[in-house]
Amino acid sequence: MLPNITITPAAEKFMRRFVRFSGQPAGAGFRLTVSAGGCSGYNSEFTVEAAPLPGDAALDVNGLTLLLPAESRLLLDGVTIDCVDTTTKSGLSFFNPAAAACACSSSEGASSTPPGLAKISISSIRPAAPKPLLS
């Protein structure tokens, strides 16, 4: 079952750039792995893959292939994925209107981030490990 995900134009542009500059062949997809974590938010990792990995579902987003593992599909149902690009923050953000409000406090203040919003910094992105050459 494919989740009901809203991807903003800014998030789509962000994903397309990663695919375009990845060095992968045409038709490669943006693979987004999400796990529950943080205060009412998500931990996530993304890579560009030439083909879906076992268990991935491919979601077409205006010609962009979004690859989602099973757990990510469950967690992202009903979520809006956006891209934040300001002078202080840059990366994907997730808004889940069904998430409960956070009961803990943070250094930024309890009301600075809407419930269910998690931000991923561009600085956390690392290049994929080189693949071994076949002999």
Rank of each mutant, 00 (worst) to 15 (best):
E71G: 02
G38C: 03
A118D: 14
K119N: 12
S72R: 00
T65E: 09
Q24L: 13
E49W: 04
G29C: 09
P97G: 09
P52T: 01
L2D: 08
R20V: 11
A11T: 08
A58M: 05
E108W: 06
F46I: 09
V34S: 02
Q24K: 13
V34C: 01
D60P: 11
M1K: 11
G41D: 11
S123K: 11
G29V: 03
A103F: 08
A51T: 14
E12N: 10
C39A: 08
I125P: 08
T80Y: 07
F21M: 13
D77F: 03
N4C: 08
T65A: 14
G55R: 12
N43H: 11
F30N: 04
G91Q: 00
A51R: 15
A57D: 11
A26Q: 10
L74Y: 05
F95P: 01
A103R: 12
A51C: 06
T6G: 05
C102L: 03
L76C: 04
A128C: 02
A118N: 11
S105C: 13
L75K: 05
L117I: 07
P114E: 11
A101M: 02
G37T: 14
L53R: 15
E71I: 03
L134C: 05
A26L: 08
F21V: 13
V61I: 03
P97D: 12
A98E: 14
F14Q: 07
R20C: 07
L133W: 01
C39R: 06
R73Y: 03
S35W: 14
T65W: 14
S124D: 15
E12P: 13
C104M: 08
F30P: 00
G109Y: 02
L75Y: 05
G116P: 01
S93H: 03
T65S: 15
E71V: 00
L66C: 03
T33S: 08
P130D: 13
P114V: 01
I120K: 12
D56R: 05
L66D: 10
L53A: 15
S112M: 04
A26M: 12
A100P: 03
S105F: 15
S40P: 06
A70N: 06
K89A: 13
